[in-house]
Design a protein around this nucleic acid. Structure first.
Lengths: 229, 229
DNA sequence: TGCTTTCACCGTACACCGTATCGACATGGC
DNA sequence: GCCATGTCGATACGGTGTACGGTGAAAGCA
């Protein structure tokens, strides 16, 4: 939850490149990671603190720093760990459209299940092994389109962008009742004629599964029109 | 070092040397908002703290709570304030495609200029007057498509989703050099054949202005194919 | 005029946070 | 047995948001 500075961690070795400590367990990077994800899943990313994770593991805060260098590392690990669940594995559905669509659907499901993934993604662009596997799988999905390297990357990031945007909208669309009444008041003010005209329909714009399928379809239509002959 | 404890100084200053109490305002919601945005723009959202904003305004932290209820309120205000800059105002370019494209471009520019907007948007879905104006303007842009209320909302949120996703990718794509070398190592491992095959091209997938235009074009193509006859 | 209410400002305190520094201690290699 | 290595932890520092209550000046009212 806490907003991070988008500053430069340029010169640093990423977590994944560092070796895990082995000697004697009693604590491990995996145990820390599991507990952090458990807290994030049930109480939100904001509830994940070094002290909290340590307490749940029956350990003092500073002990965690044997396995990670800073709290941000924990977030990197969490994100990449969740990325593993985004992999379909094995054979992809036949046809690039179905394959890419299946990946997008799975990605959405995982991001909805771990709602903190969207938060982390915004200020964390680090590339872990599992997010690379996700890219690898996506490339396989669109291989038959025979697009150039640049175009291939562009196609799958375009889909990823849409999925991320959609999930963010979806997670934020359970707007409170106070907002609802505020919006109703402001619509009655007459300053928003177009919005008021649409008021009969689904003004909330609440994103859901149906919207996801349809809008993803538009994007895939556009890609299809530009990359098949 | 600068005076650190102004409270001490306050209690010790003789009455006659003290300034006469200022007129009514001395502080205002707008002043707080402006200062918060200034800090966020120059030092990142993480640098925006109640104490910091107060200090820059020559005021004690608790004074801010006369004008806002929670720190989160400040973020809501900042976001909506920035949304005002997303408005094109006046007449939109002719044609729904050009109009919607122009709005999307402007939205991207504003979000890139205030890089904290993406961060806030993730965990803040509140609807302020200016974000409503943005929706209002977008509805006008696609009016000629004559889509139903639900479809109209869907079309413009689909574009907004893509823009948000793209900006997040774009802000995160200045991946550090450490990551680069890590990625190069892992590509050589042979576990990622597809990625390695693409390694000649732009593997980084760094999002930029050109990518934005092209991929936005795909989405608009898809919308066009589904909503024009 | 004096009394009361209102309200902007803020001093203090509390419960958190990440983490630097250093020390205690168990183990493995020599 | 000794030392190097590595895990775990106690303490401390400098931050954070904000609850609570106080203060003094202005505003409303008698």
């Amino acid at each position: 939850m806490a907003p991070k500075d988008r500053g430069e961690e340029c010169g640093r070795t990423p977590v994944w490149a560092r070796e895990k400590q082995q000697r004697r367990p009693a604590l491990s990077r995996d145990a820390i990671l599991d507990e952090a994800m458990r807290i994030a899943d049930t109480e939100g990313l904001g509830a994940v603190s070094i002290r909290r994770v340590a307490a749940n593991l029956g350990v003092r805060p500073m002990s965690l720093y044997t396995y990670i260098d800073r709290k941000e590392d924990l977030f990197d690990l969490m994100r990449d760990n969740a990325c593993r669940a985004m992999l379909l594995g094995g054979a992809l559905p036949g046809g690039w459209r179905e394959a890419l669509g299946a990946i997008a659907r799975r990605t959405r499901q995982v991001m909805l299940h771990h709602s903190w993934m969207a938060d982390i993604t915004v200020y964390n662009s680090s590339v872990g092994p599992n997010s690379l596997r996700h890219v690898e799988e996506s490339i396989r999905a669109v291989a038959e389109l025979d697009a150039g390297p640049r175009e291939t990357v562009e196609i799958l990031t375009a889909v990823d962008k849409f999925v991320l945007g959609h999930v963010i909208f979806e997670l934020g669309s359970h707007s409170g009742l106070a907002e609802q009444s505020y919006v109703r008041t402001i619509l009655a003010s007459g300053e928003f004629p177009e919005l008021a005209r649409l008021a009969g329909g689904a003004v909330s714009g609440a994103a859901g599964g149906d919207d996801f399928e349809r809008q993803l379809g538009w994007l895939l239509d556009g890609i299809e029109a530009n990359f098949t002959r």
